[in-house]
Amino acid sequence: MYAFDIAKPATLAEAVQAMKTGEAQALSGGQTLIPTLKQRLAAPSVLVSLAGVGEMKGVSAKDGVLEIGGAATHREVAGQRHYPGLAELAGRIGDPAVRNRGTIGGSLANNDPSACYPAALLASGGSVKTDRREIAADDFFQGMFATALEADEIITAVRLRVPEASNYQKFLQPASRFALVGVFVARHADGVRVAVTGASEGGVFRWTEAERALSADFSAGAVSGLKHPADGMISDIHGTPEYRAHLIGVMTHRAVAAAS
């Protein structure tokens, strides 16, 4: 790692201030950032630890919306009872030690194309609250490792619409155990949303064809005949674009079966 300082603000205001200094980089759980720093792929001058920021903790539900502090750990999200589909997803991210440190805000800000939370947020609908604004879920993700966040912007909370029924199916990449393909299906009163992670070169995306079919008929049978095209799917040593496209169909089918 390159040398850097660590700032430990206690309030959001202090954190915002700290982010304005030099090459500041927010440090949340660090479960992705620290391995990245070890590879010397980033050279911040200061890491702003968000762990002590009181305003970014906690989980609360109101009017069908679950609000989760940006610094809430995967373990905390897994333990909440308001949104079972999300809890189940969070309980399968990484491993137990990673879940004790990694946070929802950190994961969303990083937007790894194989991460789980982006699929949950996109399928849930809702928004990302930051130190300066609120960004709609549909506007937040902008391709692999790219989001609508500005460089010094901090995710303070995530607001998700709690669906009537939901399920997340993750097919593991055997080495990293990130999602080779993950599909989050959420049935809302106003329609079904299907979000796919791990598969696309463009990062997390909604499978609108499946959404239309499922909004008309929320049953596994409704997506049995659907095939996602392989165009734009990731090709790597763990799977071809065709294989990933195939898995999108399989995982969607299983998620619907589990949710319905």
């Binding site: 660590i6 430990k8 440090l27 660090g30 479960q31 620290i34 391995p35 890491l47 630890s49 762990a51 373990r75 137990p96 030690a97 990673v98 004790n100 440190r101």
Partner: peptide
């Protein structure tokens, strides 16, 4: 009281 990976946490964070 919680299991963490000590290689993925800064000493300063454990202050």
């Amino acid at each position: 009281g919680e299991a963490v990976k000590a290689c993925t946490m800064f000493a300063a964070e454990a202050d």
